[in-house]
């Protein structure tokens, strides 16, 4: 994979990082300080360019929703934020993504470590085929953040509590995670992501496979999690974006058409293309 950086500058640590100051066309929304930012981010799958010059600041301890039609690049963009696209052959990226101002594509960055800072929850709940307890304890044990049994016990309990699942599973932690309901499995996956103490949680359509009640529970959880984490969520469900996100970015054909606070974007969008999409006028 080729990684190029534009507008590079040298930090105190001597690491080259992209310029993350707001440029003229940067689509900054930030009232809160920026946790992650993309600067002139371009991505190609082979010869096909999927992202075109994305500039987006994602404010800390806020929920930023990415909306747009299928194939618009929103999931591709999400996967850039913890370098999941590294796993796809023939992907080429140019531009920068910064976490707290540090370039995550710098060659010195440990990708495994990066993904503990920037966790991910997928569309389909994908618990490990292990017990509920092991689902949570696996990664901390791997990363060495929880070594003793009592430390792990505490971590499992606190993670499940933060994910709003503890009361439902406290008496059956040895049960396989796969035996939980869909909504519970998704909250288990969120608990698993939380267990390694991330700063950012990426969610790719986290509720699209869930029924309305389980969806409401996950949305409530997202609302609670934003006090401690920065959340970026991809969703096809416009009402879900309207319900959970403080900021919303509309992607179309690999570009960001508009970023705005969610209230403004859903009541008085600046761009006609946004208006057409969210009102169901897209042809």
């Amino acid at each position: 994979m080729e990684t190029e950086l534009k507008n590079g500058s040298v930090t105190k640590a001597g690491v080259t990082m992209p310029e993350t100051q707001t440029t003229r066309d940067q689509q900054a929304v930030g009232r809160a300080p920026t946790k992650m930012s993309a600067t002139d981010l371009n991505l190609w799958y082979g010869e096909t360019q999927a992202l075109h010059g994305i500039n987006l600041d994602m404010p800390a301890q806020e929920v930023t929703a990415l909306i747009g039609p299928s194939g618009c690049g929103k999931s591709t963009f999400l996967r850039c934020l913890n370098r999941m696209n590294d796993l796809i052959p023939q992907v080429r990226i140019r531009g920068g993504v910064a976490l707290d101002g540090e370039d995550i594509y710098d060659p010195s960055v440990d990708v495994v470590q990066l993904r503990t800072f920037v966790g991910m929850v997928f569309q389909k709940p994908n618990p490990f085929p292990k017990s509920i307890y092991e689902n949570i304890a696996y990664a901390p044990r791997l990363h060495g953040t929880g070594t003793s049994r009592s430390e792990l016990d505490d971590l499992v309990e606190s993670s499940l509590k933060r994910a709003g699942l503890w009361n439902e599973v406290a008496d059956r932690l040895d049960t396989p995670g796969t035996e939980l309901s869909g909504g519970q499995q998704q909250r288990l996956c969120i608990a698993r992501a939380i267990a390694v103490n991330p700063e950012v949680i990426l969610m790719d359509e986290p509720a699209s496979a869930l029924d309305p009640l389980a969806t409401a529970t996950v949305e409530e959880l997202i609302h609670e999690l934003k006090d401690n984490y920065t959340i970026v969520i991809v969703t096809h469900n416009l009402q879900q974006a309207a319900r959970v996100a403080g900021y919303t970015a509309f992607f179309h054909m690999g570009q960001i058409v508009e970023v705005n606070d969610t209230d403004t974007l859903f009541t008085n969008p600046a761009e006609q293309r946004t208006e057409d999409y969210i009102t169901g006028r897209f042809g």
């Binding site: 859903f266 208006e275 009102t279």
Partner: peptide, 9 residues
């Protein structure tokens, strides 16, 4: 319909 934007207005 959960109208948005100009429809909501």
């Amino acid at each position: 319909r959960q109208p948005t934007a100009s429809d909501l207005r």
